[in-house]
Amino acid sequence: MSRILLIEDDHAVRVGLATALGRYGHDVVATATGEEGLRRHAQDAAELVVLDLMLPGIDGFEVCRRIRAAGTVPIVMLTARGDDIDVVSGLEAGADDYVVKPVEPRVVDARIRAVLRRAAPAAPGRTSAWGDLVIDRAAMTVTRAGRPVAMTPTELRLLLELSASPGQVLSRQQLLRTVWEHSYLGDSRLVDNGVQRLRAKIETDPSSPVYIQTVRGFGYRFGPV
C-alpha cells in the first residue's frame, strides 16, 4: 500500500478520487488547499503527491516548487487543460508526470503506479564512471565529484536508461515508453523537461552539456564527447 497525498480543491473530485484510489489499494490523505497539503506533507511525508494546479491561495505551481525544494518525492499533477503553458510550467516546477482533467481514477492510478515503479531497483548491473560522475546501478545511486546527487525516481530512471547504452541515440518515443510508460507517445515535453532537470544536476554547464547530448530531430545520446 502506497501513501498518497492528494491536494485538490474541488470537493466532488477530491472525494471521488480519494475513494477510488483507496479502492485501488492506496492509503490516501486528501486536502483542499496548498497550505494544508504542505503542512500534512511536512508532518508525514507521502510516497507520492497528486497535485491540482489550480488551487486557491498558494497555487499548485508554488506547492510543487516547495515540495520539490524539500525533497525528491514524486509528483503527479492534475491540470484542467492540456495547454502547453500549464503543462510546461508544472513540469518546470518539478512535477514528474501529469494527467488532464476530467480523468478516470484508473488513469490516475496507472500514472501513480508507473511513477512508483521508477523507484524500484534496476536490473543487476555495474558501477560506471564517466569523469567525476559515478552511477551505481545496483544501489540506484549517483555521485558527482564524490558527492551524492539527489534525484527523483523519474530523473534517476531516465539517467539509468540513457547511460545503459553509451553512444546510442534514444528517441523521445523510446524514452517515453521505457521511462514514463506512456502508451501515447506524442508528448515529448516530459522527456525534454526531464533531460533539462537532469542536466542541471549532473552537468557543470547545462547549456553546454557533456554527458547528455541532443540529437536534433530525434532524441538524446549519453556519453562524454
Rank of each mutant, 00 (worst) to 15 (best):
W130F: 14
S89E: 14
E181P: 04
P74C: 04
I212L: 14
A164H: 09
R137Y: 05
G60F: 03
M151T: 06
D10F: 05
G71V: 02
A200N: 14
I67Y: 14
W130G: 04
V107H: 11
R157F: 06
L5D: 03
R23C: 06
G146F: 13
T154C: 04
G219E: 10
V107M: 12
V225P: 15
A200K: 14
V73T: 15
R23H: 12
I75Y: 13
D97W: 02
E8P: 01
W130A: 07
P209C: 08
V115G: 02
D27A: 05
T79V: 00
L78N: 01
F222Q: 03
V215T: 13
A46F: 09
R118H: 08
N193S: 13
R199Y: 13
A123E: 10
R14M: 11
G25P: 06
P209D: 11
D192K: 12
A138Y: 04
V76R: 01
R177W: 10
L198Q: 09
I202V: 14
I212C: 07
E35A: 00
L170F: 15
R113I: 06
G71C: 00
V191M: 09
D192H: 11
R65C: 07
R106K: 15
N193G: 09
L6F: 10
G223L: 09
L190H: 07
E36F: 02
S2M: 10
I7T: 01
I212M: 08
L160N: 05
T204N: 13
V210W: 13
A119E: 05
V149N: 13
L175H: 05
A119M: 02
K101L: 10
A18E: 08
L51S: 04
L185F: 06
D136F: 02
A95S: 07
T33I: 01
Y184T: 10
D83A: 09
G194H: 09
A42T: 11
G146I: 06
I85S: 15
L198W: 11
Y220T: 02
V50I: 15
R177L: 10
L51C: 04
P206F: 10
D109W: 08
P209R: 11
L48H: 02
V88T: 11
R66K: 12
P56H: 04
I7N: 01
A93R: 06
L116T: 02
M140A: 11
P74N: 06
V50S: 05
G25E: 09
D97M: 01
L91P: 08
L162M: 05
T31A: 06
R118T: 04
W130L: 07
T127P: 04
G90D: 05
I112W: 05
L158T: 03
H41E: 12
I85L: 15
K201S: 11
L133G: 09
